[in-house]
């Protein structure tokens, strides 16, 4: 499995994606700095800051994951290279799992790392400006960490939903559009109701899609 994953990664153009991820993160950071430090918005406390960060980052990486899916899965079907892959003495289920694991881990790791890095930057800036009241306590950090990791896990699950929709049509645009739709759906806040329950359903849906794929 290890081997298959590394082979899949070799086929991807990761350098291009890395640049894109950096730019996205920079944009999110700039936006957060504007909102928190220059605009007197409703994002005032640390938990709120981290929550906002989480939402933005999750949404962007769900979209990124759909791009990755279209590269890894949909393109293979479109270019017919999947028939080549299927003539190899390797179980097809394993081949597909390797791809899905990449997408899942990609979303998971990127979300956690991005939240951690951007969060640290925000905290660092705040130590000069003191725009966010309150101290950073161990309790706060732990709860943020738990929320982030849990959120990243379900977001990674959700990011697999586009496989399902994309495979029906075998088209790259469909996959990415469905990724954008899913991302905007979960990151919009319906009148202050947390999307926790809905999200759990989505995560299991994502896993279901994985099983069927």
């Amino acid at each position: 499995m290890h081997k298959l994953i590394s082979l899949e990664i070799r086929k991807l153009n990761l350098a291009g994606m890395r640049k894109g991820i950096l730019i996205t993160n920079a944009a999110i950071l700039a936006f957060m700095i504007l909102v928190v430090f220059f605009d007197q918005s409703e994002i005032e406390t640390y938990p709120e800051v981290f929550e906002a960060l989480n939402i933005f980052i999750r949404a962007s990486f769900i979209i990124y994951a759909s791009v990755l899916i279209s590269k890894l899965v949909i393109d293979e079907y479109k270019n017919n290279t999947i028939t080549l892959l299927f003539t190899y003495p390797i179980s097809r289920i394993k081949l597909m799992y390797a791809k899905i694991i990449i997408v899942f881990l990609f979303a998971l790791i990127n979300i956690v790392v991005s939240v951690a890095v951007l969060g640290a930057v925000m905290v660092g800036i705040n130590s000069f400006t003191n725009a966010i009241p309150g101290d950073i306590t161990a309790d706060l950090l732990i709860s943020v960490l738990i929320k982030t990791v849990a959120g990243a896990v379900y977001a990674a699950g959700i990011s697999l939903i586009p496989i399902y929709i994309g495979m029906r049509k075998k088209s790259v645009p469909t996959t990415i559009v469905s990724g954008v739709l899913v991302a905007s759906l979960i990151s919009s806040n319906f009148g202050g109701i947390r999307l926790g329950n809905f999200v759990l359903v989505s995560a299991s849906l994502g896993l279901l899609g994985m099983a069927i794929a």
Partner: peptide, 27 residues
């Protein structure tokens, strides 16, 4: 449909040869 081992003993081109276009011939 599970006879993967057999596929090791075959080499094939079906319809037309497909490659990973962005990679080089050697890759």
């Amino acid at each position: 449909s599970r006879s993967y081992e057999m596929l090791k003993r075959m080499g094939s081109i079906i319809e037309y040869p497909v490659f990973y276009d962005r990679l080089t011939a050697r890759e």
